[in-house]
Computed example of a mutant assay.
Amino acid sequence: MKKANVISEQAPLPCSRLKQVDVTFRDFSGKTQTGAIIVMDAVAHRVEMIFSALYQHQIPIQSITPIREFFGDDEASMRANNTSAFNARPITGGSSWSKHAYGLAIDINPLQNPFVEFQASQIVVKPPQAAKHYLNRYSYRLGKPFRTGMAEEMVDIFANNGFLIWGGYWNDPIDYQHFEIGPRALVNRLTAEPSKARGVFEKYIADYLSCMQLSERTPRENARAYCSASVVEKYSHWPTQ
């Protein structure tokens, strides 16, 4: 990965904390394929569960290839409509480390779920070939074919496995392809305490699922928004646990 410009000595997470998860998925023609995705060790079991659920729900994915195959070039990976996770890079347009640099964020089907940024009077879409077809976020449109592979149908699967933040809810930029686990304080805890990281992550998920169970009479979209925000806020102000 160092030779492929995916990780460096300055990266916030060492190679020893990374794990490759081998997954099975359906492509857009319905054929079963295999792929691999690299994430932090503490969340690897949950990432395996996410892709197992996507497969069971027959949600198509174009490809799942570690970004080393694109020499760390996020835009090249997007243009190939590739799903990936770990990449020791800063946030788009910034200098602080992205959640991808910790193996705690996943970008899925970038063509169907583009990154949208507003620059002055201009809208920038990445990958650019997504612009005409996927900025209208309705999978069903009258008189037009149903569009699968859009992130909206995956939000619950990701959230139920700890990836509570979906970039599709953001205002600027809007990152439809992007799912991440949550607040920086939680990321720091998972990074700093390897022996406890998996247990901490499971507690985070349990708190979210407990909130959802208590909110079962609330419309699911509203409950998800409330519970995600509530749990993320709780773990943003990290007490010693």
Rank of each mutant, 00 (worst) to 15 (best):
G149M: 08
A53I: 06
A11I: 05
R147V: 08
P110V: 01
V187K: 06
K2R: 13
P145C: 03
S84G: 00
G30S: 05
D207A: 11
S210W: 02
E202R: 15
V43P: 01
S63Q: 14
A4N: 09
N81T: 02
G162W: 00
E9A: 14
A130G: 04
K144Y: 05
A159S: 11
S52A: 06
F70S: 13
N87P: 02
I174Y: 02
S195I: 05
C211R: 12
A206Y: 04
S210Q: 09
F115N: 15
G35S: 09
H45T: 14
A105F: 06
I50K: 02
Q112G: 11
F115H: 15
A130L: 07
H57G: 00
Q20M: 11
V155E: 10
E153V: 04
A76H: 02
I106V: 11
M49K: 15
F51S: 07
I91Y: 00
D172T: 10
P14S: 00
T83C: 07
P194A: 09
I106Y: 00
H57M: 09
F146T: 15
K2Y: 09
L104F: 02
Y235R: 10
R46P: 02
I38R: 14
N82S: 10
E117V: 05
F179D: 12
Q10S: 07
S84P: 00
N87K: 12
L111A: 06
I108D: 03
M1I: 06
P66C: 12
C227I: 09
K144I: 02
D172S: 11
N81W: 02
M49A: 15
N113I: 01
T32L: 11
R189T: 10
A130Y: 04
R220I: 08
A101H: 01
I67D: 11
I205P: 11
R184C: 00
L18H: 04
I108W: 04
N222S: 10
T148D: 07
D74M: 13
F25C: 02
R220Y: 04
S215V: 03
Q20H: 06
W238V: 12
S236C: 06
A229S: 14
R189H: 08
E48L: 11
Q129N: 13
V231D: 08
D207M: 08
H178K: 09
F115D: 15
I108Q: 05
A229Q: 11
Q62D: 10
A229K: 13
K31H: 06
D74I: 15
Y176Q: 13
M212V: 05
A11F: 07
K3S: 10
G182E: 07
E9D: 14
